[in-house]
C-alpha cells in the first residue's frame, strides 16, 4: 500500500454489523419482525428486493436514522467480541440523490461534515479527494453547474472525506445513465475497498457486479435470503458466462420475491 492510498483509508478498522431481533413498523404495518442479519467486515453486501419492501428502512436503521423498536439491537463488531455502538464508528451515508447543498461549491460540499462537527476544515485533503474522483478543476463549481454523474462523484468524495469504516449506500447510482453508472461503480469500488459496505439496489446487474454477499429481501414482515454471488474480484465483468448464469438465476429469484410481496 502506497502512502497516498493509506491517506484515503478509514480511521478505524472495518466492523462487522450485526442486527439481532430488529423490529420496525411503518404507518401501522410491520416491516420487520425479529429480523436478524450479519454483514461481514470489510466486504460489500448488497440488498436487493422489490420496491417498498423496506430496503431503505433497514439502511436507515443501521445509519441510526430510525430507532430500533422493542428489544432488538444494531451492533458494530470491530474485532472478536469488541462491540462498539454507533457513536464510535458512525456509518457514512450515500443516498440516491446526491444531496449536494446548492449554495456551496464542490469543495464546500466535501468539507460539509467537518463544518457540521465544528472541526477545522481540511481543504487540502478535500482537494485531493476531488482530484481522486476526477474533479480537480471543479472545486469551485456549484452543483447546478455539474452533470448528474459529476454531482454523484462529489458525493462520493464527500463520503470518502468522512473516513468512515462503514458506508451505507441507498441506490446511489440509480439516477445515472448506463455509461456513467458503470464508471461510478468502478470508481466507488476502487476507492471504498476494505470498508464494510451495505449497498441497497433494485438492479440485479449492479448487485452481481459489486456484491460480495447478496441478500434478497421479500415479504411483509420482511425476510432475508442470502444468495450465492459469483466468484472473482469486484467490479465483475458483466460479459462473463458465469456472471450471466448468475444474472438469470437472480432475476428468477427476484421475480419470485416480487410475486410473494
Amino acid at each position: 500500500m502506497t502512502n497516498s492510498e493509506k491517506f484515503f483509508q478509514p480511521l478505524s478498522p472495518p466492523p462487522a454489523i450485526r442486527l439481532s431481533r430488529v423490529n420496525l413498523s411503518y404507518e401501522g404495518s410491520v416491516l420487520f419482525h425479529d429480523l436478524d442479519l450479519e454483514l461481514p467486515a470489510g466486504r460489500v453486501s448488497v440488498l436487493l428486493g422489490p420496491s417498498g419492501v423496506g430496503k431503505s428502512s433497514l439502511l436507515r436503521l443501521i445509519a441510526g436514522l430510525e430507532v430500533v423498536e422493542g428489544g432488538g439491537s444494531v451492533k458494530f463488531i470491530v474485532s472478536g467480541d469488541q462491540v462498539s455502538d454507533r457513536a464510535v464508528t458512525p456509518p457514512a451515508y450515500m443516498a440516491q440523490q446526491d444531496l449536494l447543498l446548492p449554495w456551496l461549491d464542490a469543495l464546500g460540499n466535501v468539507i460539509l461534515g467537518q463544518r457540521l462537527r465544528s472541526d477545522t476544515p481540511d481543504r487540502s485533503r478535500a482537494r485531493d479527494l476531488l482530484a481522486r474522483v476526477g474533479l480537480d478543476n471543479y472545486a469551485h463549481a456549484r452543483p447546478a453547474a455539474l452533470s448528474g454523474g459529476m454531482r454523484q462523484r462529489v458525493a462520493l468524495a464527500r463520503t470518502l472525506m468522512e473516513a468512515r469504516a462503514t458506508v451505507l449506500m441507498d441506490e446511489p447510482f440509480s439516477a445515472l445513465d448506463a455509461v456513467t453508472r458503470l464508471r461510478l461503480q468502478e470508481l466507488a469500488t476502487k476507492l471504498l475497498r476494505g470498508r464494510t459496505i451495505l449497498l441497497v439496489t433494485h438492479d440485479p446487474m449492479e448487485a452481481l457486479r459489486l456484491g460480495e454477499c447478496i441478500f434478497i429481501m421479500s415479504g411483509r414482515p420482511a425476510q432475508l435470503t442470502e444468495v450465492p454471488s459469483p466468484v472473482g474480484k469486484t467490479p465483475r465483468d458483466p460479459a462473463d458466462v458465469e456472471f450471466l448464469t448468475h444474472h438469470a438465476e437472480l432475476l428468477s429469484r427476484l421475480g419470485a420475491a416480487e410475486a410473494g410481496f
Binding site: A63, L65, Y93, L99, G113, L116
Partner: peptide, 15 residues
C-alpha cells in the same frame, strides 16, 4: 435528505 445526511455526519442542532 439533507437533514438525514447532516445527522449521519454528526451535526449538532446548532450547526
Amino acid at each position: 435528505g439533507w437533514t438525514d445526511l447532516a445527522r449521519t455526519m454528526g451535526a449538532s442542532p446548532w450547526t
